[in-house]
Simulated assay, not measured.
Amino acid sequence: MKKVLLAAAVASLGLSAAHAAPTLYGKLNVSLNQVDNNDWKGNDQTQLNSNASRIGVKGEEKLTDSVGVIYQAEWAISTDGSGSDTDLSARNRFLGLKFKDIGSVKAGQYDSYFKTSAGRYQDIFNDDTNLDITKTMYGEERLKNVVGFETDKNLLIPGLVFSVMAQMGENDSSNYSTKKRDSFGSGVSTSLAYDNKDLGLAAAVAGNFGVQGAYNALSLKGIESDAVRVTGSYDFTKVGLAGLVLGALYQHAEPSDAPSAASLAGAVDKDGKTLGLDKRVGQNLEENAWLIQATYNILNTPWTVKGQYQSAKTEWDGGDRKLDQYGVGVDYNFNKQTRFYGVLAQQKRDWQSNDDKKTVYGLGMEYNF
Results as ranks from 00 to 15, higher is better:
Lys27Ser: 13
Lys27Gly: 13
Leu28Met: 04
Leu28Val: 14
Leu28Arg: 02
Asn29Glu: 14
Ser31Ala: 11
Leu32Tyr: 10
Val35Glu: 14
Asp36Ala: 08
Asp36Arg: 12
Asn38Trp: 04
Asn38Ile: 11
Lys41Gln: 15
Lys41Tyr: 03
Asn43Ala: 15
Asn43Glu: 07
Asp44Glu: 12
Gln45Met: 04
Gln45Asn: 13
Gln47Trp: 03
Asn49Gly: 09
Ser50Asp: 13
Asn51Arg: 08
Asn51Asp: 14
Ser53Arg: 00
Ile55Ala: 12
Gly56Arg: 04
Val57Pro: 05
Lys58Gly: 02
Lys58Thr: 05
Gly59Ser: 09
Glu60His: 11
Lys62Ala: 12
Lys62Leu: 13
Thr64Gln: 08
Val67Glu: 13
Gly68Cys: 09
Val69Tyr: 00
Tyr71Ala: 06
Tyr71Arg: 03
Gln72Gly: 04
Gln72Pro: 02
Ala73Ile: 11
Glu74Asn: 04
Trp75Leu: 15
Ser78His: 09
Thr79Glu: 03
Asp80Ser: 15
Gly81Val: 03
Gly81Arg: 06
Thr86His: 10
Thr86Gly: 14
Leu88Pro: 10
Leu88Asn: 13
Ser89His: 12
Ala90Gly: 12
Ala90Ser: 15
Arg91Asp: 09
Arg91Lys: 13
Asn92Asp: 11
Asn92Leu: 04
Asn92His: 09
Asn92Tyr: 09
Phe94Thr: 03
Phe94Cys: 01
Phe94Ile: 03
Leu95Cys: 11
Leu95Met: 13
Gly96Trp: 00
Lys98Leu: 04
Lys100Gly: 10
Lys100Ile: 06
Gly103Leu: 02
Ser104Arg: 09
Ser104Cys: 11
Ser104Ile: 04
Val105Arg: 08
Val105Ile: 06
Lys106Leu: 05
Lys106Glu: 01
Lys106Ser: 06
Gly108Thr: 03
Gln109Glu: 07
Tyr110Asp: 01
Phe114Arg: 00
Lys115Leu: 02
Lys115Val: 02
Thr116Tyr: 01
Ala118Phe: 01
Ala118Ser: 13
Tyr121Thr: 05
Tyr121Pro: 05
Asp123His: 03
Asp123Trp: 00
Asp123Leu: 00
Asp123Met: 00
Ile124Glu: 04
Phe125Arg: 08
Thr129Pro: 07
Leu131Glu: 03
Asp132Lys: 04
Asp132Trp: 01
Thr134Gly: 13
Thr134Ala: 15
Lys135Leu: 06
Tyr138Gly: 07
Glu140Leu: 07
Glu141Asn: 13
Arg142His: 07
Lys144Met: 14
